[in-house]
C-alpha cells in the first residue's frame, strides 16, 4: 500500500510517498484556502513527501502568489521543515533545561554513540533520524523523547534504546 522512494544514499522511506506533482497540487489546493495558508501547506507537503523539495517550493510560490525566495525564506526559517529526505522515522530527544537537570544529555550522547550518528543525523540503514528538540512539555517526567507521536518520559538507557529500536 505504501509507496517507497529511494532518497539520498539509498535510504528507504516507506512512510512517505515519491514526488508526484499532481498529488502536490492537490495538497496545496486543499490546504491553501484559508488566511495565511503557507505553514499549513508546507506541513501537509512535508507529511506527504517527507521533505520539501525545490519542485514543491516552486508550486507553492505559484499557488500562493509569492516569490520562490519568500517560500525558501519560510522553509529555511523553521526547524521543522527539511529540504532533504530524513530517515524512515524521526526520534526527537529533548535537550532543554528540565531534561538536562535529569541527566538527559549523557543519555542522549550514549544513544548517539551507539547509533553512530550526530544530532540531526540518520542511521546508516536509513531507519532513524535523531533530532534535538527544545521541550516536549514533559518536564515533570524528564528526560523525555518522542518518536512520531509516541512520547516517553523518565527515560533511561533501556527505554530510550527501546524507543530508538
Amino acid at each position: 500500500m505504501e509507496k517507497r522512494i529511494t532518497g539520498i544514499k539509498g535510504t528507504i522511506m516507506p512512510r512517505t510517498q515519491a514526488w508526484d506533482e499532481e498529488e502536490a497540487r492537490a495538497i496545496i489546493a486543499a490546504h491553501g484556502k484559508g488566511e495565511g495558508p503557507m505553514l499549513p501547506v508546507l506541513h501537509a507537503l512535508q507529511a506527504a513527501f517527507g521533505f520539501i523539495s525545490e519542485e514543491a517550493m516552486r508550486l507553492v510560490a505559484a499557488a500562493l502568489n509569492v516569490s520562490r525566495a519568500e517560500v525558501h525564506g519560510v522553509v529555511s526559517f523553521y526547524h521543522d521543515f527539511r529540504t532533504q529526505p530524513g530517515g524512515e522515522s524521526c526520534l526527537k530527544i529533548c535537550r532543554a533545561e528540565a531534561c538536562q537537570a535529569m541527566g538527559g544529555e549523557a543519555l542522549a550522547a550514549g544513544l548517539l554513540q551507539k547509533l553512530g550518528v550526530d544530532w540531526g543525523g540518520t542511521t546508516a540503514d536509513g531507519r532513524l533520524t535523531v533530532e534535538a528538540v527544545y521541550c516536549l512539555g514533559l518536564c515533570a517526567c524528564a528526560p523525555a523523547a518522542m518518536r512520531g507521536d509516541e512520547v516517553v518520559g523518565r527515560l533511561d538507557a533501556a527505554n530510550l534504546a527501546e524507543l530508538a529500536a
Binding site: 529533548c94 528540565a98 531534561c99 527544545y134 521541550c135 512539555g137 518536564c139 515533570a140
Partner: peptide, 11 residues
C-alpha cells in the same frame, strides 16, 4: 506556543 522548558500548563 509553549516553548519554555519546565512549562506544560498550556499543554
Amino acid at each position: 506556543d509553549e516553548g519554555d522548558s519546565g512549562t506544560f500548563a498550556d499543554r
